[in-house]
């Protein structure tokens, strides 16, 4: 049989579809606006993706372990507000660790509910999405939070500084990606995350303490959220209570786009980074083409659907299947 059969093409699209679509996007955007592939623009995209990216790293662990984390957006708002508030009260040196501790406590609480009480992670984190939002508003009294002396604080270094010409958020994102990538790919803990997400029962039968592994994934996710909150606060030095609103879906989109399966057991940090960049470039491209930023909400949704479809299709090896 010469040439490709229909099902072979389908299979290829199912496996590589997202890269094909991405390539088409890039070509299209570049034709529409050549500034798209300008090095400055590319750097800009990476920088503006860094916060989302940092959160996506943590969520990757949670998703691979077979769970969801929809609370990261409102948790990031919480971290941002808390660190900005404490900055003026106890100074940045103490504010940062205090904010990390508080965010990790939230992560530990979620982890406890999901891992040890074995509650459904979708319900728990969806509930925490609004509960933490309420917590943030209570904390701030509903007001925006601003640092009094915006010029005189070294706190801005995380969000605005650069080292050797590369902006600090990018460096932090890449460093964290490297560390977490190694943890996931090379350590016993990482191996167990895959096992728990791939087949929890078999993992238990192999002596893996499943609850601990899942709990740790939520702690890692919370750590990443706290880091993202730090970057956000340091970049803007002032913030609304809703700064992270809606990010949970974009984060999830990036993770799935990178190829992690919602069923758990697959995905890598490297792929998530790719997913983050794809999402960042598409958003940027849409803006450059002249579409309003809110179009992006619709596009994000379309991307999630596309990614989930391709995920299922890749498992079937077909784009479309008449049975189940």
């Amino acid at each position: 049989m010469a040439g490709l059969t229909k099902s072979q093409i389908g299979g290829f699209l199912a496996r590589q579809g997202i890269l094909v679509a991405f390539a088409l996007f890039i070509i299209g955007f570049t034709i529409a606006n050549p500034r798209f592939i300008d090095p400055d623009n590319i750097m800009g995209v990476v920088r503006s993706s860094a916060i989302l990216g940092v959160m996506a790293l943590g969520v990757t662990f949670v998703v691979i372990s077979g769970n969801l984390d929809l609370s990261v957006g409102s948790m990031m708002s919480f971290s941002t507000i808390v660190v900005l508030d404490l900055h003026d009260k106890i100074g940045p040196t103490l504010a940062i660790p205090t904010m990390f501790a508080m965010t990790l406590a939230l992560g530990a609480f979620i982890g406890f509910l999901v891992a040890f009480l074995k509650l459904n992670s979708l319900i728990v984190t969806l509930g925490m999405l609004s509960a933490i939002h309420g917590l943030t508003l209570t904390y701030s009294g509903g007001k925006n939070m601003d640092i009094a002396d915006k010029e005189g604080t070294w706190f801005s270094v995380f969000g605005q500084g650069d080292i050797a010409g590369i902006s600090v958020p990018i460096l932090i994102f890449l460093l964290l990606a490297l560390v977490l990538g190694v943890v996931l790919a090379k350590t016993p803990f990482g191996r167990k995350v895959y096992a728990v997400g791939g087949n929890g029962t078999a993992a238990t039968f192999s002596g893996v303490r499943r609850a601990r592994v899942v709990f740790m994934c939520y702690i890692i996710s919370a750590f990443c959220v706290a880091t993202a909150g730090l970057l956000q606060a340091s970049r803007s030095l002032g913030s609304q209570n809703t700064v992270g609103q809606g990010l949970e879906l974009e984060v999830l989109a990036a993770v799935i786009l990178g190829g992690a399966s919602l069923l758990g057991g697959s995905g890598t940090i490297f792929k998530t980074v790719i997913g983050v960049l794809i999402l960042g470039f598409i958003t940027n491209g849409l803006l450059l083409v002249g579409l309003q930023f809110y179009v992006q909400f619709v596009v994000t949704w379309v991307i999630i659907i596309l990614a989930v479809w391709l995920d299922i299709a890749a498992k079937r090896g077909k784009l479309w299947s008449p049975i189940a």
């Binding site: 190694v182 090379k186 350590t187 016993p188 191996r191 167990k192 895959y194 096992a195 791939g198 087949n199 029962t201 078999a202 993992a203 039968f205 192999s206 002596g207 893996v208 057991g265 697959s266």
Partner: peptide, 28 residues
């Protein structure tokens, strides 16, 4: 159901119960 993580490779499945003991520094 109980014995294997089907999506994982042969080696990782086989060493799963002792992965904590097979370390070089912090790595597997």
């Amino acid at each position: 159901g109980q014995g294997l993580v089907l999506g994982m490779n042969c080696r990782d499945n086989m060493t799963l119960p002792q992965v904590d003991d097979l370390k070089a520094g912090p790595f597997v």
